[in-house]
């Protein structure tokens, strides 16, 4: 499907769900509008809530290439956009000399596209497929302000100029997804170019759906208990609250262990799947795993029989 083929939010919702990504309605709206209006999507949220995953699923949905640019501090134009293949250029000059080519003409063509090393941004702009690619600019908050300014320029007109060649303009505007974990605030100018969406932790019902979609083999009871347990864990005062990615990892681990019901022992043994800091694990253990597990099971039982209230 090409980006503009979507005619309603429902369609986007259905397409993503079909690929086992359960979006909430507001996110589907953002994606739909981004596709229709040709705007980049700017996703913020805690780690592990499915920001990067959305880009991957989107590429899959649109049946197109995913081009990923992972940001880090010090990321510069040469790593993000293009670089010349210097060793090859030098060799070429030597070869031309050896071949006895006219002195004036030696090295005349070494700044041509043959010697250009494409980096993600240029790749996205030069993409020649029948459908625009999905360009994922991941963890933009990790890059520095200079790169942000440069990116702003690229995202506004999807063209870059390479002095030796000239200006290269994108045939099709790529579907751009930017993600940020909010380790720092990004400049407003960049955000203004984008459609913004804050991905929150899912509610219980959604989390159950996501677990069930991602791990088709899981029993309903376990999925529910997991979801309720995770809600409780996120309510604790932790340094790093677990995201939905952790829930899925954990559910996978429990499945592999052949667990069908949560119990304190298993939870204790597999707590590393959802909590990544020693302090957090200790905090939860002090808070009483058994109590949390019991509450999760009670909540689940309660939710199953709303009529008995």
């Amino acid at each position: 499907m090409s980006p503009t083929d979507f005619t309603s939010i429902d369609q986007v919702e259905a397409a993503l769900t079909e690929r086992r990504y359960i979006p909430d309605r507001a996110l589907a709206t953002t994606v739909f509008l981004a596709l229709r209006l040709g705007k980049p999507i700017f996703l913020e949220g805690e780690p592990g809530v499915g920001k990067t995953e959305l880009a991957k699923v989107l590429a899959d949905t649109l049946d197109t290439e995913l081009i990923r640019l992972q940001c880090y501090e010090g990321l510069d134009m040469h790593t993000a956009l293009y670089e010349w293949n210097y060793p090859r250029q030098m060799l070429e000059v030597r070869l031309q000399e050896a071949r006895g080519i006219d002195k004036e003409r030696i090295g005349a063509d070494i700044f041509s596209e043959d010697y250009l090393l494409e980096r993600p941004l240029l790749k996205a702009i030069r993409h020649s497929g029948s459908k625009p690619p999905v360009l994922l600019i991941d963890e933009i908050d990790r890059s520095d302000e200079e790169f942000e300014a440069f990116l702003l320029e690229v995202l506004s007109d999807f063209q870059v100029s390479i002095p030796e060649i000239g200006t290269i303009t994108a045939h099709q505007v790529p579907v751009v997804v930017l993600t940020s974990n909010r380790t720092r605030e990004l400049h407003d100018a960049l955000k203004r170019r984008c459609l913004y969406h804050w991905i929150d932790y899912p509610d219980v019902q959604k989390e159950i759906e996501i677990v069930a979609a991602r791990l088709p083999g899981i029993e309903d009871d376990l999925a529910r208990q997991l979801a309720f347990f995770m809600q409780r864990v996120r309510g604790e005062d932790l340094y790093k609250r677990p995201g939905i990615a952790e829930t899925i990892d954990w559910a996978g681990a429990l499945l592999a262990l052949g667990t069908s019901e949560l119990d304190a022992g298993t939870v204790d043994a597999t707590l590393g799947c959802i909590l990544k800091y020693k302090g957090d694990i200790e905090k939860l253990q002090t808070a009483g795993l058994e109590k949390l597990v019991d509450e999760a099971r009670d909540a689940q039982a309660f939710a199953e029989s709303p009529t008995t209230r």
Binding site: A26, T29, L33, L195
Partner: peptide, 28 residues
């Protein structure tokens, strides 16, 4: 963007209308 977005969605659906406004107008 907001006005352009309104032409794309069914504005009778309050939730979608709200989501469209939020995603086009807010950045924080």
């Amino acid at each position: 963007d907001f006005c352009a977005g309104l032409q794309q969605i069914d504005i009778a659906n309050a939730a979608d209308f709200h989501a469209a406004a939020r995603t086009t107008l807010m950045h924080r």
